[in-house]
Amino acid sequence: MGKKSISKGVIKDIVIVAVGVLVIWIGLQIAFGTQNPFYVVASGSMIPVLEVYDVLIVSGHEPFEELEVGDIIVFDRPSDHNRVIVHRVASILDEDPRTIRTKGDANPASIPGTDFPITEEEYIGKVAYTLPQVGYVTQLLKPPINYVIIAIVIGIMVVKQFTKRKREKELSFTDPMDSENPNTIEELSDIDKIEEDSEYSEPTELDTVENNEEISETNSDEIIEHNKETEEEKKE
């Protein structure tokens, strides 16, 4: 039963964490208007503005029609859509349909098929915030490190549940004389008071002997006086 309870507790914790991450992720998607608000810079084409391993927070709420020259945007490579690019808008090629050309700050010129032509179909979003070098964390999450981290997290959950079960068992077998049980101590203290009161209310052996001596002395005095009176009557 103990192992089943621990496993249920671990599963419950994992579900809570998973639901929490899912809720946060959905909230971020809604807030930034894109399916993936976070991107990690993987090349040096935008140095020195963007360094490798910088994390970009991208906003999809910025309309493609309102992009201006100088904006840094994230988009799918137009030639095959199998790679995400982050470059700066270099010029507007056409307005109907709107088509733009980009260029990496560190590149000497725009690359056909990569920097242009960019249409609304390729557009993902505009860079809103940059978190410098935070992307190093993603390197730590690559296999097998990510599996080790997951194992450690699950281990912590198991230990947490085991400790909780042990504490519950200790509380269920608490000694009635334990200081954590104030009602028992109060009852015992009341019993002590009753015993003390009874000691003072019941006569002791010494008190009984003294009382008997006093009674015997009183009776002897009364007998002597009675005999004196009888003798005087006889004489008369």
Rank of each mutant, 00 (worst) to 15 (best):
P144R: 01
I85V: 15
D94G: 01
P143G: 06
T130F: 07
D115N: 12
I145E: 00
T102P: 08
E95P: 05
I118G: 13
F116K: 00
H81N: 09
I152W: 07
Y136Q: 06
I111V: 04
N146G: 02
Y136W: 11
N146A: 08
Y147F: 11
G125C: 05
A90W: 04
H81E: 01
H87G: 03
D115I: 09
N107L: 10
V134W: 09
E122S: 13
E122T: 10
S91A: 15
H87K: 01
T138C: 08
D94P: 00
T99E: 10
P144I: 07
T130G: 06
I156L: 08
K126C: 12
R101G: 00
S110V: 06
Q133A: 11
I150H: 00
A128E: 08
S110I: 09
I150E: 03
K126N: 13
V127L: 10
I145C: 09
I149W: 05
I154D: 04
A128G: 11
N82P: 09
A109V: 13
I85Q: 13
G104Y: 01
L140T: 02
E122P: 13
R98K: 05
A90C: 04
L141R: 12
G125S: 15
K142Q: 06
G113R: 13
T119P: 07
I156N: 11
I145D: 07
